[in-house]
Simulated scan of single mutants.
Amino acid sequence: MTSTAPTTTLARYLGQKLLEPLHLVTYMCDEPNEAMAGIGFDDGQYWPLYFAGRAAPLGQVPAAVVDAIFYNFAPGMAEEFYTGVWDVTTPSAALAAREAGSVAGLRRVLGPLADSPAIARAADLALRLALNAPSEGRPLYAGLRTIAVPTEPLARLWHAATLLREHRGDGHNAALVAAGINGQEAHVFAALDTGMTPRAYGRLDPLSDAELEAVVDGLRDRGLVDADGEFTVAGRELKDRIEEQTDLAAAPAYSSLTADELAQFTADLEPLAAHIEAVGYDYRVA
C-alpha cells in the first residue's frame, strides 16, 4: 500500500522541511569552509569555495556551464569566482572536503542525535529514494549520482539529502524557465515571497542599485510586481504555480514510499529538523 498523501504536499514537506535542513550545513556552518581551506582555498573568500564544492560533481566544466546550471546568480559571478578553482585542487578532492566538512558540521549541530538509530534508518530510506529518482533534465543531480555513496550513516543521510535537494533544484529551474522567469527575477520572487527586499536577499549583491531596480522594473512592466515593490495578484499566482510545478517534478522521488515507510521516515526526520531549527547552525555542543 502506497501513501495516499497529496504528492505535491508530500514532496515539499519531505524535501524542504525535513531533508533540506540536513543539507544546509554545507552553506551555514564553518566546517565545510575549513575543510576546503585544508585543500588550498582561502576560507575568507566564500564564493570560490561555494562554486568549487557545489560544481565539483560536474567535473572541470567551463564557467558558462556552471552559470547555466546554477541558474540564479548575478551575471558574471560564476566567471569571477569559479574560474581558476581547478588550479587550486581537483573536483574529487573538493567533493571529499565538502562531504567531510558538511558531515562534521552536521554532527556538531545535531549533538547526541547524530548517533541515534534514526540516522541510519532515515539514511537508508532517503538514499533509496534519492537513487531511484528520475535524472532526465537534471544535470546537477545526475552529476551527484556518479559520486560514491558514503558508508557512515550520518554521511549517507547528508549525501541523500543533498541528492534530493539538487533533484528538486533542477526541477525548480525547469519550472522557472517554463514560466519565463530568469535567474535574477527568480531571486526577486524569492525575496518577495519571504517578505524581504531584493537587495537584502543576497546573490544579487554584485548588481548595482540601478541594475537591480531594472530587474524589478521588468517584472513591474509585466504586471507581476506593483508600484510598491510587492507581488500583484498575477505575480503571486505565477509564483505559486512555479512552486506547484516544482513539487510535481520532485514528487516521483517519493512516490515509492509506503504508508508505513512514510510514517517511520517522518518520525525519524522531524526531531532532527526541529532540533536544527531550535538551535541553529552555529550551535556548539557543550
Rank of each mutant, 00 (worst) to 15 (best):
T2H: 13
T4I: 11
A5L: 14
T7Y: 04
L10I: 04
Y13A: 14
Y13T: 14
G15H: 03
K17M: 12
L19C: 05
P21S: 04
L22S: 01
H23E: 02
Y27C: 00
Y27A: 06
C29H: 14
C29D: 14
D30K: 00
D30Y: 00
E31S: 03
E31P: 01
E31T: 06
N33L: 14
E34W: 06
A37W: 03
I39C: 04
G40S: 09
P48K: 12
P48Y: 11
L49P: 00
L49R: 12
R54I: 13
R54K: 14
A56Y: 04
A56W: 00
G59M: 10
Q60N: 09
A64C: 06
A64V: 10
I69Q: 04
Y71A: 09
F73R: 07
A74P: 05
A74M: 10
P75V: 10
E79D: 15
E79Y: 01
F81V: 05
Y82S: 06
Y82C: 06
L95F: 00
L95N: 13
L95C: 06
A96T: 15
E99S: 09
G101W: 00
V103P: 02
R108N: 13
V109I: 14
V109N: 04
G111K: 11
P112T: 11
P117C: 07
A118K: 13
A118T: 13
A122Y: 12
D124V: 02
A126V: 02
P134Y: 13
E136P: 02
G137S: 04
G137I: 09
R138P: 03
L140E: 02
L140H: 11
L144E: 12
R145F: 01
I147C: 09
A148Q: 14
A155C: 07
R156W: 06
R156G: 00
R156C: 03
A160V: 03
T162N: 12
L163Y: 05
L164N: 08
R165Q: 08
R165L: 02
E166S: 02
H167I: 04
L176D: 04
A179Q: 08
G180N: 13
G180A: 12
G180H: 10
G183L: 11
G183C: 12
H187W: 11
V188W: 03
A190P: 01
L192C: 08
T194F: 08
T197D: 09
T197V: 10
P198R: 08
R199K: 15
Y201V: 08
G202Q: 09
L204E: 00
D205S: 13
L212M: 13
A214I: 05
L219W: 05
D221I: 00
R222P: 09
G223P: 09
D228M: 05
G229R: 11
G229Q: 11
E230G: 12
F231W: 13
L238G: 01
L238A: 01
I242A: 09
D247K: 03
D247Y: 08
D247E: 15
A250N: 08
A251V: 06
A251T: 05
A251L: 07
L257M: 09
L257Q: 05
E261M: 08
L262V: 02
Q264K: 09
T266P: 01
E270P: 00
E270C: 00
P271L: 08
A273M: 10
H275A: 06
H275E: 11
E277Y: 11
V279K: 09
R284I: 14
